[in-house]
């Protein structure tokens, strides 16, 4: 496979996604998105409901391909029409619901074993071994929830916050090219959300992971990451790099939104979660 000359981890070119095409319910979820994410860049993606944030993550994760004419490249490899499970070689993801990122009926160790082999061929070798258990213990010790001593516990017995923290470890243990966080703390209570977000920041910084984090919360979008992207009606309407982002305030963001989108900012959902 040919490597691109630049150092971008992710290159999206002319990404469009239309749902229910040809019916009265037609929705243009993504309407020509171009985006490049540099290696080790932590990008936050903000936007109101229906802006296309989740659709964008789904395209990167390969849940569905974009419309013809669009192109998705990760690490210089074109993955546009690759099946979802093949994207896993490059992309890992933490979903909004802790239940989606973990398997309830398996133990913590078994969940991590599944995650450790992300994107690699699975064989008839024993899934659990001493060396792997050691890797798991070390990874779990760093999140300081005491899970390293409970490797054999059923994941179904963990709390939502613990499961989401485990999802995060599962998403990062095999060092993906790009980490997708899909409002991954939105369903947690405020304190647990903060804990999981702190863990996220710690892991992303330590592993220098290229990250796309979708959020509803403007304050979070400002506080975390080196770059902020705002989406509206399937387009990127704002792209603020590190230099400007440092001094950015929520009022600036709202003003910028109104300027860029050409309409008054009325999304209670976004405002309330500030």
């Amino acid at each position: 496979m040919k490597r691109a000359a630049n150092h971008d981890v992710l290159n999206l070119t002319n990404i469009r996604k239309i749902f229910f095409a040809g019916t009265v319910d037609k929705v243009v979820a993504l309407n020509g998105v171009d985006l490049s994410v540099a290696d080790q860049e932590f990008v936050t993606v903000i936007g109101s409901n229906g802006a296309g944030k989740s659709t964008l993550l789904n395209v990167v994760a390969g849940v569905f391909p974009p419309e013809r004419g669009g192109k998705v490249e990760i690490q210089g490899d074109e993955v546009t029409r690759l099946e979802e499970y093949k994207h896993a070689r490059y992309v890992s993801r933490v979903w909004q619901e802790p239940e989606v990122g973990t398997s309830r009926n398996l133990s913590i160790e078994e969940n991590l074993s599944l995650a450790l082999l992300r994107g690699r061929p699975r064989t008839l070798k024993k899934a659990g071994n001493k060396k792997r258990r050691q890797i798991f213990r070390e990874a779990l010790a760093q999140i300081e929830l005491g899970l390293e001593d409970r490797l054999t516990a059923q994941v179904g017995t963990l709390s939502g916050g613990q499961r989401q923290a485990l999802s995060l470890v599962m998403a990062t243990i095999s060092k993906p090219s790009i980490l997708l966080l899909d409002e991954h703390i939105a369903t947690l209570d405020p304190r647990t959300a903060q804990t999981v977000m702190d863990l996220t920041e710690m892991i992303v910084e330590r592993e220098r992971m290229s990250t796309l984090m979708v959020t509803h919360n403007m304050e979070m979008a400002l506080r975390y990451g080196k770059r902020l992207i705002m989406m509206h009606k399937g387009k990127i309407i704002l792209d603020i790099g590190h230099d400007q982002k440092k001094d950015l305030k929520i009022t600036d963001l709202i003003a910028a939104f109104e300027r860029a989108a050409g309409e008054e900012f009325t999304d209670d959902n976004v405002l309330l979660s500030c």
Partner: peptide, 18 residues
């Protein structure tokens, strides 16, 4: 192991490359 997670969470499995 991948088989055993199948009935429980296929979405996760695909995300993990299964």
């Amino acid at each position: 192991l991948a088989l055993r997670a199948s009935g429980d969470n296929e979405k996760m499995l695909r995300g993990l490359g299964v």
